[in-house]
Computed example of a mutant assay.
Amino acid sequence: MDNIAGTRARLVWAVNLAAAVLVILWVVPTIGLLVSSFRDRDQITASGWWRAAFPATISSFVRAGTAQDQFQENGLWVIEGNVLEPGQGLERWGTSSRAPEAYAPGETVDLKDGEVITVAPDGGYRLTAPQEFTNTRGMRIFITTTTPPRFTTDNYARVIGAEGLGRAFLNTMTVTIPATVIPILIAAFAAYALAWMQFPGRALLVAAVVGLLVVPLQLSLIPLLRFHNEIGLGKGYLGIWLAHTGFGLPLAIYLLRNYMVGLPKEIIESARVDGATEFQIFRRIILPLSFPALASFAIFQFLWVWNDLLVATVFLGNRPDQLVMTGVLRELLGSRGGDWEILAASAFVSIAVPLLVFFALQKYLVRGLLAGSVKGG
């Protein structure tokens, strides 16, 4: 018995360690995303989020002044300016993309046609030539600079101030709330019937529900949209509500049925002896006792629908008045999706409401999932 007890203690330690590792694997990227949401594009490109508190080395280029900025001095034509922004320090500079760090600050370089350029350590440059400058764009000066840590809220201002975001928020709420409530209502009735009512084919229905859990929703998007068009639903809120309901019902029925099977049988039998109908048992006994499972599925369904883009695009549309939040944020990122600072800020803006829902119902989550995962019949 001592050996068994010692083994159980070691297993508990291993479980705790595994849980800690999983928490770290989830929390660390989230912290990194949060830090990145307060950095600008240059900082994100130059260094990882874990170096956000340290100076970053950034390579870029600036354009010197044009012919309009020149002036004459001692028989030479001169263009002057500065390549640095406030707070930056110059490390290296160059005049070609092939050798962007060819020269040290303060060096003087001879260019073609007698042109000479000098870039001082403070970033000030002086470009001279014996003949008048004719360029209208300005030559490129490649610089490698040391930039101090810089944090900004401009990313959030750009996301929150995006055109159409307010309308998209209302569209998302209009889609998410019914698409969460409707499958819960339907699944609760179905789960009670599969758990406590005796009828032919019940086992086959349970097997069918389990089988539907593994069917990819992508396989049914186009056939379902064609069916909606044939019966006159088209693209709209009713269609997307029904689509999310259909996609969410298998998991909802499975979780709720497994939970209801584990409820005390004596309570239900006593209610039947007292003359209670099936609906009265369901409404007054089963539903109150099943609230943890209902809340668990509500969290999952709300998060899924809120963060959905594919189903919303297929069943709702892409017009500005139809876009959900994920659609507006996708448009904000552009076709190439290279604005990492906007992506990070968008992530935290979009998860604000789901976090409120999760923390409001999280105390029921583990209780409902555990009970639904180990009870069955």
Rank of each mutant, 00 (worst) to 15 (best):
P264W: 01
R41P: 02
R51V: 01
L221C: 09
Y103L: 07
R202V: 07
L287W: 03
R41Y: 05
P86S: 11
W77Y: 13
W13K: 14
Q301I: 13
A271I: 01
M260E: 00
A162V: 08
A344D: 03
G372F: 05
F61R: 15
E266T: 12
R98A: 14
K265Q: 04
I186P: 01
E269R: 07
D2E: 09
T7M: 10
A203L: 14
M197Y: 07
W26H: 09
A207V: 14
R137D: 04
F247M: 08
W196R: 15
L224V: 12
L185E: 00
S47M: 11
T134Y: 10
W13R: 14
L323W: 02
L204C: 10
R137W: 08
V119G: 02
L316C: 08
N3L: 09
Q131R: 11
E266P: 01
V119P: 03
D40Y: 13
P55C: 07
T144I: 15
L343A: 13
L165S: 05
I285H: 01
G317M: 06
Y364S: 07
L370M: 15
D40L: 14
A190G: 11
E278H: 12
N171W: 04
Y254S: 04
T128I: 03
A207W: 10
V214S: 15
G372Y: 05
V62R: 11
P320N: 08
G338E: 06
V181Q: 01
A193R: 01
D274L: 10
V374S: 10
L76I: 06
V35S: 05
R137C: 03
P264F: 02
A67V: 11
L194M: 09
E107R: 09
V35H: 05
K363I: 15
Y156S: 07
R367T: 14
T326A: 10
L343T: 04
P288L: 07
L249Y: 07
L111P: 06
G166L: 14
V15E: 01
W77H: 10
F133K: 06
V23A: 12
A252F: 03
S335D: 02
L127Q: 03
L294K: 09
V15Y: 05
D42V: 12
A162I: 08
E331P: 11
I240C: 08
I44D: 00
G317S: 06
G232S: 14
G262D: 00
A19N: 10
T128R: 04
